[in-house]
């Protein structure tokens, strides 16, 4: 199991409280390098909260979120960094990042964790191409000498911009939006906006791509295309993918590893096959409880004589 032998992201005892509400309680799981990991659970289970903690949009109440670039991190190295008051290591292999200590934009720029949103967040007034160029902000900012070199029109910046355009064009080709490159992103149909958001996240050159319900609002054909797209992205770039999804056909089809949470705690963790047959998962999803079982029995008992009556 790659998430045990070669974890990219290690979430330890993560808790998130909003006032009196405990959204995530003592949650631990690992994301394997190169895996497609699905985070599933019933509505309100705290999936998006976990995402927001990983990507820095929420400051976790307690717990540790460690990400390693390069080789798998040894627990000792993570502990050493945790005891220091630093956020990350510099020039080590593996390079370690403690995401719970970093602000959101540094998580994206330095730890290279990209994300999409449940309700699509594109730059609607800017063109499709510009959306992808903005995503390459860090590289271009560097090349433009923090705008001074760019203002003077240095050749290094022009070369970097040409490269950025090529990368954007490549991703547009992958998501099939090349012919819409110069259209405002807000005018694209819904499914295309979803694909563009994924392409934009990939333009930041991430090691971990977090997708919040990528198949929401897509029909069956589009969901199948999305599955193909995600597989293709992983094969091409080796990026690890962590996704929240409600569409079980997508989850079961695509995931190497499934983590199930309910009421902010983990109830199952394993391959898609093992999770599917886990009685606690079935109970969580179908809402089967003792009272419900008893009620179901009563219904069956009532129905049986009625049917007998009709039959006679």
């Amino acid at each position: 199991m790659r998430w045990q032998s070669e974890p990219l992201l290690v979430v330890d005892h993560l808790s998130m409280r909003f006032g009196g509400l405990v959204a995530v309680k003592d949650l631990s799981f690992q994301v394997g390098r190169g895996d497609i990991t699905a985070l599933i659970g019933p509505n309100g289970a705290g999936k998006t909260t976990v995402f927001n903690c990983i990507t820095g949009f929420y400051k976790a109440t307690s717990g540790r979120i460690a990400l390693a670039h390069g080789a798998a991190a040894t627990p000792d190295a993570v502990d050493v960094l945790t005891r220091s008051d630093r956020r990350r290591t510099y020039g080590k292999n593996p390079e370690l990042f403690l995401l719970e200590r970093m602000p959101d934009h540094e998580i994206a720029a330095q730890a290279r964790v990209a994300r999409t949103f449940q309700n699509i967040r594109l730059f609607p007034g800017m063109t499709v191409l510009e959306n992808l160029i903005v995503a390459q902000h860090k590289t271009l900012m560097h090349a433009s000498g923090w705008s001074i070199g760019g203002l003077l029109g240095l050749a290094t910046y022009r070369a970097a911009e040409r490269k950025a355009l090529e990368l954007a064009r490549a991703w547009l080709e992958v998501v099939g939006l090349l012919d819409r490159a110069d259209h405002p992103a807000g005018e694209l149909p819904y499914g295309a906006q979803r694909r563009l958001e994924i392409a934009r996240a990939m333009c930041t050159n991430p090691v971990l791509l977090c997708l919040d319900e990528p198949a929401a609002g897509l029909n069956n054909r589009e969901s199948a295309e999305l599955t193909k797209l995600l597989r293709g992205i992983r094969a091409q770039t080796g990026v690890s993918i962590l996704l929240i999804e409600h569409d079980m056909s997508v989850v079961m089809d695509i995931s190497d590893h499934v983590v199930v949470i309910e009421y902010g705690t983990k109830i199952a963790d394993g391959t898609a096959e093992s999770v599917k047959n886990d009685p606690r998962v079935i109970a969580a999803y179908l809402g089967v409880e003792d009272e419900d079982l008893a009620a179901a029995d009563r219904v069956n008992a009532d129905r049986a004589p009625a049917e007998e009556g009709r039959g006679s």
């Binding site: 934009h105 994206a108 330095q110 902000h137 760019g150």
Partner: peptide, 25 residues
């Protein structure tokens, strides 16, 4: 046409998306 100018416009369009792309708002 520089990254800083594009970041300004992106900021106008959606600040949260900016942060998710590593732009220091």
């Amino acid at each position: 046409t520089l990254p800083v100018g594009r970041a300004w416009e992106a900021l106008r369009e959606d600040e949260i998306a900016c942060r998710s792309l590593g732009i220091n708002t």
